[in-house]
Each structure stands twice: as C-alpha cells, then as structure tokens.
Design a binder for these strands. Structure first.
Lengths: 359, 359
DNA sequence: CTGAAAGCGCTTACAG
DNA sequence: CTGAAAGCGCTTACAG
C-alpha cells in the first residue's frame, strides 16, 4: 500500500523537476515544455501516481463534482406527477454518470423521501464543498429547490421544462427537455405514410382545454398527434380529432378501457398513437383480446416496447445527458461554470426531438 | 456567499473556544463537556457552519465514501448473465444511497461499458482518496475485480453470492444475497395451502443436472420449488417433478411457449411458480390466451407484478442494503473498516429470505 | 477536558 | 517556462 504515499513530491523528485511543474503538467499542460512534460508523465507512470483529489479540491476550491437525486421505483406514481416512468429516470442517471466521466467530473447521488427537506440536503452538499452544481429532475411549479438554487446562484440544470406559466421561475432557469409533440407527430406521420388513415390517440388525462401552447407533458404529446393529424387529413375542426382520442391514467387497465371505448366509437380505427409504452402495451393487449390487429406506438423505447414489438419514441437520453453538462460546463473542459445570467441560455436548442423507432 | 468563508475558526471564535474543541464536538462529542458542546453547537447553528469535507478527508485520510457501479437497462440481457432485472439493480442503488445517508457516508457512482477496464476505474477511485471501499454487483466467476480488491485488501462487499465452486475466491470474500430457494418454496407452499395440488414451475435454463447444492440463481430457485413440492406430495422421485417444470429464457415469448408446453402435458395444472415476474407475466398472458384461469407467482415484486396482480417475492432490497453497510462498517458508526481477515464474515446471516407478497 | 502546533497533498499567487 | 513559499480547512498527535 505504498501507493497512498505516492504524492506529487515523489513524482517531482523522480522527474527532476519542481512540484509546480508536475502540477502544471496535470492541470495546464500547455504551460509546460513538451520534453519536460514527457519526463513528468514518465515519472507519473512509473510511480503509478494518482493525484489526491481531496487536496486538489481543498486548494482549488472546486470539487469538479455534481449531485443528482436517485429515486425509488417501488411506489407506483413516483415523481412529480407519476408520468415519467422509472425507466427513463434510471437511464438518465446512468447516462449522466457516463457523460460526467467523459468530462472528468464525479457524480454524487442522494435521495429524498417524502417529508424530507431536499433544499437542506442541497445546501449541505454545496456548503461542504462536495459539489459545484446540481442536475434536477421532476421539478414542479414553484419548486423550492429552484428558489434556493437561483437565490444562491448555484449552477444547476433541470431535466424537464417548466410547465405552466404561473410560476415566477417559468423561464428564468436552465433546462433541457424532450420534444413530446415532435415525437407523437412523427408517429402519426409514420402511420399515415404506411397507408393508415384513421389514426387514433391514447393519452394521459390533462386539465387543459386545448390551448395552442402545451401545458404539460400529457398535453404536449396530445398536441403533437392532434396537429399532425389535422394537417394530414386537412380537417381543421378540433372535435373531429377529439373523438378519435381517449385520455386516462398511466395504467394497463386504463389503457385497455380507453381502447375498448375508442374501438366502440370507431370500429374502423387503423392505428393508435399512445403517450407511453404502458398505454401502448395496454392497447395492444385489448386489441389482441378483441382479435383486432392494428399497429400501436408508444413512448420511451423501453424494454417493454422491444419485448412486445411495437414502435416507440426513443428519448435520446444519452444526448440529453451530454447536453446537460454542456449547459453546466460549456462546450468543453471540466469546470462547472457559475451561472451569473441565466437569460443567456439559448432555450430553442434545449428541446430534443425523440427518435422514432419503427417496429 | 459568505457561507463558504465560514470555517471552523469563525465557529471557535464565536463560541470562545479553540479550533480543536469545535473539531471534537463534531467528531468526538464524548470528549467535550456538555456545556462547552452546547456553546459550540449554538455557534455552529448561528453561523450556519458546514465542515469542508475535502479538508476533513485530506487530513483524516478517509473519505467516508463508497462507490457503486450504475448500469444501463437499455440492452436486453444486461449484467453477468442477464438474469437480474434492471428493476432490482436500480432499487439496490437507491436503497444503498439511502442507507449510506443514514450512516453518514457518501456514494459515488461510476459506469463501465463493454471493453472498459473496470479494475482501472476502481484503482483510480481508491488511489485518489475518493472512496474507502466498494459495493459490487453482478460478479462473475474469476471476476478480476475480486482479485484486485482482495490483493489490495480494499474493503468491499458483493451483492450476489459466488456461484460455482471452481473459482479460487469462492468463499473468501464478503457477500450478501437473497435466498431464491426459500422464495420459490414459500410460493409453492402458499399455493398448496390454498388447496392447489398440481403446482408447476417455470424457470430459466440451467446447465446443472440437479445436484443438491444450487449452482446458479436459476438453479437455486428451481430447487426451492422442487424440494418443497416433493416434500408436500411425498413423492421423492425427481422426474415426477421434472415433468411439471419448463425451463427457458427471460422473455415473454419463451414463457408463453413454456406455458403452452406445460399445459399440453398437464392440462390439470392448478398453479404455476415462476422464476421471475417476466416469466409470470408471460405465463399469465398465455393462460389468458388459452382461457385458463390458474394463479401464477413471480419473483422481484416489481411494478409488473403489481400491475398484473400476481403474487411475487419481494427481495427486501432495503434490508439487503443496510446489511451490506453493516458488513462494511460494523454495527454502527461511519467508518469503513479494513477487512484484514475475510474469514470472519458470518455467512449464514448473509442470505436474506425474500418476502412473499400474495395477490 | 482543552490548547498551540504541525501537516494532510495539493494549487495558487508571486518571483524569476 | 520554472521555482520557492504560502495556504486551502480541517484533524491529529502532543502538551498541559
């Protein structure tokens, strides 16, 4: 275990240079003459030297670390509104850790159970010097985390846009999100191009009465189908679409009931765009039960969609994760930059279209 | 942002004591007179002081942190043998982080894609002083991680016992696991007590020809049903059980085919114990297709089992996680202890029986 | 039980 | 481009 004794001093001695030169090779290679650097790197390799990151963090006053919350999938209806499946959440954490490794930063995880004060946890993580910023998921309107982070000018990014406009933070913080409308639009067009003409929609309940700007994930995905279908059929009346659409809960049972109702009204239905893989599975089951064979599409491209072989929309979580870090850290490098003026965020770039996977 | 300037010095000044006393209050409260401690705590509270953990780690030479790998669920057949579902893996990470918070330690996450050298990553994490130990999942025979960790005397624990006996590490490292046999036994007994007499089994393929000691997760769960059913029926011949059993892959399609074959041979089947929730779902679907109504049970108590309303076996991941830390850190405290003699591990305590959830 | 000093291993000014 | 000094904020010996 003499490795733990290998410090920058031994490397400097081995290479015949000063401590500072070794430090420069590690942190500012461009400041060091190539041949000197080579000597140092050789010594590092020979001694199998790894910098002590606590010392580095203490002195440099930056942790090169971020924190992300991990949630349990055990309770049904987790997260802000129970709409995001655990699959996406867990993939996001994985891709975030992966992207962070490529950027040379570390990811701390923390949890927050019902009733716990998450702001206090964020605050401790910051004040202890362990993290330089946060990645938020499942934000809600007037989220106390947003207020805390904005007030203290703590760098962060939210995966998920601010829905609703009543919140004071509506467009004042950095976020990245997946373009739900673009996804259901693509699915609708795909079915149309395959020759299907009666294309229905299965979605989640939403309280909004069809304004043009989406007010929730549920509404966003509904609008994608609605607009695309109106455009394709040339029928502009909202109601004509509405009757080909059923909204319910994120459960198999709800999806089956919705599908049954939809087919009762429209026995000539030819395809079904669904807001989630769960709903698509429910629809597929009900269709099988009714001996009908029409294609369905889901959302998330989860293992479920692969196993049950229906088309789905891949959220490109890997790209979302690396873009998240780009917002936090800039084009490259491994420093989390202070966000002094959130208004600089170029929002149009932060809505990622999902990728249609046809099956 | 003057909070970042709040150091132990300001606290000491505020409380009118020396630095060391403040440090003692934080780390060894028993060494400090109660009234002194009270003064100090008051000052800490007033100044909203949070210790700088990098400084603490640097000086004390311990990180009070562990690392765990996070995996993607995107590829089908992930992990060592594709048997553990992503659900359990992700729940385990969540529960581990949760348990760690209660112990006052932090959890770093890292990833490892195919072809990457995981040992190198472990080594960097240790040598940088960022972690004191590891939690391993999905270990395989002759796992290079085991060799590295054992050789270097790095504290670690594996979630998952060492299957197979050919490995040189077979019983020489600390692990914790779920008792698969106990689970399928309980499910079998439950069906028996409900009055069912012809209880079949759906499992994963296994290469082992029924020795008495289980050689894999697949085999372990098979034996649980097999032994319990023999005992209940009084029939000791292995073959009589064997014919009520079908083994295949962890897919819906395989489960449906197995179920169809089983029912063809045994039209009088009354219940079906399955090795996983996926298999149970497949069985349930095939049974519905054949208009049969017999109960099935699965394994993991995943959301799938809840949604499709069949009995399942909860792996008690929360308990597994806190026991994992107990192995690493002892009964209480927040220090990861060096494992000098692995033989001390009391293995019988490390197999956790799953909890049968009847639906 | 409490205090003054040393030092963990780096990086950051500051000189040359 | 390189070097000698200072110091990040703690905890750990070591005295009293």
């Amino acid at each position: 275990m003499n490795k733990s004794r290998t410090s920058i001093i031994s490397v400097a001695r081995e290479a015949g240079v000063s401590l500072q030169t070794v430090s420069n090779v590690l942190n500012f290679p461009e400041r060091v003459k190539p041949e000197t650097a080579k000597k140092v790197l050789k010594a590092i390799d020979k001694l199998n030297y790894t910098p002590n990151l606590s010392a580095r963090r203490l002195r440099s006053r930056k942790s090169s670390s971020i924190a992300v919350r991990v949630d349990s999938n055990a309770p049904i209806g987790k997260g802000s509104d129970g709409l995001y499946s655990g699959y996406i959440q867990d993939e996001f954490v994985y891709e975030l850790v992966r992207a962070s490794e490529m950027r040379g930063i570390k990811v701390f995880t923390y949890t927050c159970e019902l009733g716990e004060n998450e702001v206090e946890k964020l605050s401790k993580l910051m004040d202890s010097g362990d993290v330089d910023g946060f990645i938020l998921t499942s934000t809600v309107e007037a989220d106390p985390r947003l207020k805390y982070l904005l007030d203290r000018n703590v760098p962060f990014l939210s995966f998920g846009r601010p829905w609703g406009s009543s919140t004071e933070f509506a467009n004042s913080y950095p976020w990245i999100d997946v373009d739900g409308a673009s996804g259901t639009r693509d699915a609708t067009k795909m079915f149309w191009e395959l020759g299907h003409r009666r294309i229905g929609f299965l979605g989640w309940k939403t309280n909004n009465s069809h304004p043009t700007t989406p007010k929730s994930v549920a509404h966003d995905r509904l609008l994608g189908w609605s607009h695309a279908y109106s455009q394709l059929t040339g029928v502009k009346t909202k109601n004509s679409n509405r009757v080909m659409c059923e909204l319910g809960d994120e459960t198999i049972a709800s999806a089956r009931a919705s599908t049954a109702r939809l087919l009762a009204r429209h026995p000539d239905l030819e395809a079904l765009v669904c807001t989630s893989d769960t709903l698509a599975l429910g629809a597929q089951m009900e269709l099988a039960h009714l001996k009908k064979s029409i294609p369905v599409s889901g959302f998330d491209n989860s293992p479920t969609s692969k196993v049950f072989n229906f088309s789905s929309l891949d959220q490109n979580i890997s790209e979302v994760a690396s873009l998240a870090l780009k917002v936090l850290m800039g084009e490259e490098g491994n420093s989390i930059r202070k966000i002094s003026s959130p208004k600089q965020i170029s929002e149009p770039n932060l809505i990622i279209p999902p990728r249609l996977v046809v099956r």
